[in-house]
Each structure stands twice: as structure tokens, then as C-alpha cells.
């Protein structure tokens, strides 16, 4: 099933993030909370900002790479969906800062263990990396260990976005999942 723009907007609605403002910031070339900009990732270039969080392009490429592991094969158009979701999520909030820090930690582990950024790892290595950090068995905690923060900001942000969206819900059999304002009619309908 294809993830659509509507799914990304629904996912943002479920978490109360405001996409429009962040889109404007990004397309203006970065700045503000994401001051490292989009050109930082090069040979030996910076991958994090002054606060220790990953720059925006690294966050985006890493999240798309992780989504390929944690999303089921049944969904398509993942990169555009994740990108759109991050347009809202990277909104200069405390959550955005936590996300950038968690990605920076994951990125550091990737470079340490595989000598490559997350986005350049094979699918098998990405999965091994995530499990190696402990993010698979950790309980999410925004203030916890690296494993708990990667689980919270990276893995579970992606899973929340997917399964609070109409397409993600439909994969499971519920077209109006919790968090999605899908109207007060679907509960009355029987199964298809």
C-alpha cells in the first residue's frame, strides 16, 4: 500500500506537529534549530550541530534508512512519507532536539562499528546496528539511555507516524486508528 501525503499529514496531526513552518525553514536553506544546514554531510564534514544533534539532512537520511527496517514490506513511498513527516517534526521543539541527538548517537555508532553512515549501510547491517544499540528490546524513554532514546525518537517516532495514519491503520484492519481524526462513522461500519 502506498503511503500518501494525506498519511503524512495525518501522522503529524496525531502528534500535534506543525508542518508548514518547518517546511519554510528547510527550503530557505536551513537555519534556526537546524543551523548545520543541508550541505554538511561530506568527506569528513560535520554531521552534528553545536548542541550535539545531527544536522537535518542526516536526520532525514537516517530516518528513511531506519524506516526501511522497521516498516513492513507492504508499504511503499516510504521516503516521501518520512520526509514529509519530518517537515513537521523538525519544528524547533524540544522533541526535534531530542530526535537530532538520538540520530547523532545512532550515527556515531554506525561510523564506529561499520565506518559508514546509517544511510549507506546494507539493510542487514542497518538492522544489526539497531539491534546492537538495544533499540529493539528497550522501552522508549525520551530521557533514557541511548537505546531508550533511539527507541523513543527514531524507531517509535517512525512507527507512530505509520500506524496512526489511515494507510498504516488499514494494514492492520482499522482505517481510523487512534490519533487520526477519521470521523465518527467508521465505528458503525462492518468489515469489508
Amino acid at each position: 500500500m502506498e503511503l500518501t501525503r494525506r498519511d503524512a499529514v495525518a501522522a503529524l496531526a496525531a502528534v500535534g506537529a506543525a508542518g508548514g513552518v518547518a517546511v519554510g525553514v528547510r527550503h530557505a536553506g536551513g537555519g534556526g534549530q537546524d543551523a548545520a544546514g543541508g550541505e554538511a554531510d561530506g568527506d569528513g564534514g560535520r554531521h552534528d550541530d553545536a548542541d550535539g544533534g545531527a544536522d537535518e539532512e542526516t536526520v532525514r537520511s537516517t530516518m528513511v534508512a531506519v524506516a526501511a527496517v522497521v516498516y513492513p514490506d507492504a508499504v511503499s513511498n516510504v521516503e516521501a512519507f518520512v520526509d514529509r513527516f519530518l517537515d513537521g517534526r523538525l519544528d524547533g521543539s524540544a522533541h526535534a532536539a531530542g530526535l537530532r541527538e538520538a540520530v547523532a548517537d545512532l550515527e556515531a555508532a554506525s561510523r564506529s562499528w561499520y565506518d559508514a553512515p546509517v544511510a549507506e549501510l546494507s539493510a542487514a547491517d542497518r538492522e544489526e546496528l539497531l539491534r546492537g544499540t538495544g533499540a529493539d528490546t528497550a522501552e522508549e524513554d525520551p530521557d533514557g539511555t541511548t537505546a531508550e532514546r533511539v527507541r523513543y525518537y527514531v524507531v517509535n517516532d517512525l512507527l507512530l507516524a505509520l500506524y496512526a495514519s489511515p494507510t498504516g491503520g488499514e494494514l492492520v484492519g482499522i482505517e481510523n486508528p487512534q490519533g487520526h481524526p477519521g470521523g465518527a462513522e467508521s465505528y458503525r461500519r462492518g468489515p469489508k
Binding site: Y71, L159, L160, Y163
Partner: peptide, 19 residues
């Protein structure tokens, strides 16, 4: 389902199967 998806040791197709 969305709450269940955020707990557990699985992801990808295994998570979807569980949900």
C-alpha cells in the same frame, strides 16, 4: 494497534503480523 506498535521487540513484517 498504534499503541501496541510502540511496545514489543519486533518491527517490520513481524510487527505487522503481530498487530
Amino acid at each position: 494497534p498504534v499503541e501496541s506498535a510502540l511496545s514489543g521487540d519486533d518491527w517490520g513484517d513481524a510487527l505487522l503480523d503481530r498487530l
